[in-house]
Design a protein around this nucleic acid. Structure first.
Lengths: 147, 147
DNA sequence: CTCCTTATTGATAATGATTTTCATTATCAA
DNA sequence: TTGATAATGAAAATCATTATCAATAAGGAG
């Protein structure tokens, strides 16, 4: 699914949820859907404002709240802070984040769920959910550090 | 290693680091070392104050900063917030958190590192670090929800 | 054991991110 | 086209965290 399609999907999902379709929301969704990195509210505000003059920061917060509530967008936790948002995973995927440029990419982690149950089975916990994130260097940043 | 021993280890590590041994720090370490759950600064403050009258919240923040810097304590990220701290893992361990009571427990995850490299190998990322946390129900809370 | 340097302390003020409030504006169903 | 009402932006309020600073206490030197 490409970026414009994602934006469309998000706006439709919001509509189903009873939320109106506005210029502000469209701008915010477009920016976030096409972002290669997780973005924080202020960045998202600055970028989205280029597409929707007069946009307010508060609207960014409110839109993120809805998108997160609908499971379309996810908050990303990093050593440097936990206020960045990115397109949510499709199915059993996990994030891999470049610690140099911030680029984020999902990878399939379907086979991991089973393992977690098993590993945790050694204790008395009943596992219901898991958070997994990998940090490293993307291809571009590997090359950059070599040269 | 039991709780008083952990406290002692922490205070000694802080001493090596050049930090003085004070009543405030001892109280904070004692509380955090014996905690079964990750605690937020304000909670830690309230509890520690019972052992060290007049303790200030600011000192809790400062002590946490040192303990984290020395790798003795780790920040815990949860859906409800990212401002809780807990005893750091020993070696390749990961956290398992009870979503009902908050109880946290470490489990061995040594064999997982290899898997992450492998899984990520499908992409162009060079994995350097990983964050893994499991959420579920501890034994006590499983029983509670059954009865 | 006492003194003295200096790290540590708590109270207060400042900061920065996020939320709330509210009057105005825009969406969209009828 | 119209009207009920959701959505908006500006400003104020809130909350956690950080910086400031004068008073205090830790702990090495003597």
């Amino acid at each position: 699914m490409n970026d414009p399609a994602i934006t469309q999907t998000w706006l439709e999902a919001m509509a189903v949820h009873g939320a109106r379709q506005t210029a502000a929301r469209r701008a915010i969704c477009e920016v976030l859907a096409s972002a290669a990195r997780a973005m924080e509210p202020l960045e998202l505000f600055t970028e989205s404002r280029k597409r929707c003059a007069g946009l307010g920061l508060v609207t960014v917060y409110r839109t993120l709240e809805i998108l997160e509530e609908l499971g379309l967008v996810a908050r990303v936790h990093q050593p440097g802070g936990c206020n960045r948002y990115i397109r949510a995973a499709e199915g059993h995927q996990h994030l891999m984040i470049c610690s140099a440029c911030g680029k984020a990419e999902y990878f399939e982690g379907d086979d991991l769920s089973r393992l977690f149950q098993q590993v945790a089975g050694r204790s008395d916990f009943l596992v219901q959910d898991h958070w997994l994130q990998l940090f490293g260097l993307c291809r571009a940043c590997q090359s950059a550090s070599t040269s």
